[in-house]
């Protein structure tokens, strides 16, 4: 036993897409978890159903936002929450994105699908400290225009005017989509970064991560400057249950964010 869930109250919920909801949480009582940093995750407990790892998608004053896609029993229960409902939280767990790794460098954030959720607080943190880094870039891939998370915020960013270079591409355009169509790596040409002086942060389905990391290294990024967030089954978050092993890594402890220098070999062995 390594700690019990702390009760949190659902402040508001916001549907992001047909199957994805952002849930804003605040402590239900006096107890609260230690502060989160971007990329770290909580074990989120749905009463009577179970617990799943979910990254924070926004870190506010006294509030946490988790963006959850309904793919299983627990995530479905979380997506069905209403304001005032209670959940339990344990954490923060895992390595974060560690934005200071990009100090003095261009910041290149590449997201695929729900992978944008854990990256959003990183983008916000980079924007909040503009002098600490070179130019921030956010490249987003989604399935269809209707599957783009945080669409309003992204379109504001993509409209330009701010310091962030933001671009969105989809796999399958709708008839009214006027934006880019293609794999997220196809947005790299227009991003503004110096490969010799850039830290990249990548999250999405594993095959997208592999393709992106490989392309970034081909363009001259050092493998350890490509930070990727990986996913495996997690039951405990405290490095005791053994489920999240990927080779020598326990992803709840040594990840979920690790360098491509380590991830590369782990992700190319099938069924590791």
């Amino acid at each position: 036993m390594t700690g019990v869930p702390v009760p949190y109250r659902v402040v508001r919920t916001r549907p992001e897409t047909a199957d994805t909801v952002s849930i804003t949480l605040a402590p239900a009582g006096t107890a609260a978890l230690a502060p989160f940093t971007p990329g770290r995750f909580a074990m989120v407990y749905a009463f009577g159903v179970g617990e799943i790892p979910v990254s924070v998608s926004r870190i506010g004053a006294g509030e946490l936002v988790h963006t959850v896609r309904s793919v299983g029993a627990v995530s479905a229960a979380l997506c069905a929450l209403r304001p005032g409902d209670r959940v339990g939280l344990r954490g923060p767990f895992g390595t974060g994105w560690e934005l200071p790794r990009a100090a003095g460098r261009d910041v290149l954030v590449v997201a695929g699908g729900i992978g944008l959720a854990p990256l959003r607080p990183l983008v916000l943190a980079a924007l909040a400290a503009p002098d600490a880094h070179g130019r921030p870039n956010l490249l987003v891939g989604a399935r269809t225009p209707g599957d783009v998370l945080y669409a309003k915020q992204l379109s504001d960013w993509a409209a330009g005017g701010g310091p962030l270079h933001c671009a969105v591409t989809v796999d399958r355009p709708s008839p009214t989509w006027r934006g880019r169509v293609g794999l997220v790596t196809e947005l790299l040409n227009e991003a503004w970064f110096d490969p010799a002086n850039t830290t990249a942060f990548v999250c999405g389905p594993e095959a997208m991560i592999r393709a992106t990391a490989r392309e970034l290294v081909r363009r001259g990024l050092a493998p350890d400057r490509v930070r990727v967030s990986l996913e495996r089954n997690m039951r405990c978050g405290t490095a005791h249950c053994g489920h999240c092993q990927l080779g020598g890594a326990l992803l709840c402890r040594d990840g979920p964010v690790i360098g491509w220098d380590l991830a590369r070999d782990l992700l190319t062995v099938r069924e590791l």
Binding site: G113, I114, D147, D171, G182, L183, G204, P205, M208, A211
Partner: peptide
């Protein structure tokens, strides 16, 4: 071709590929 093959997987669909 590589990019198209990855898109063929429809990775962002529910349950991935």
């Amino acid at each position: 071709l590589r990019a198209t093959r990855i898109r063929l997987l429809d990775l962002y669909a529910p349950y991935g590929s």
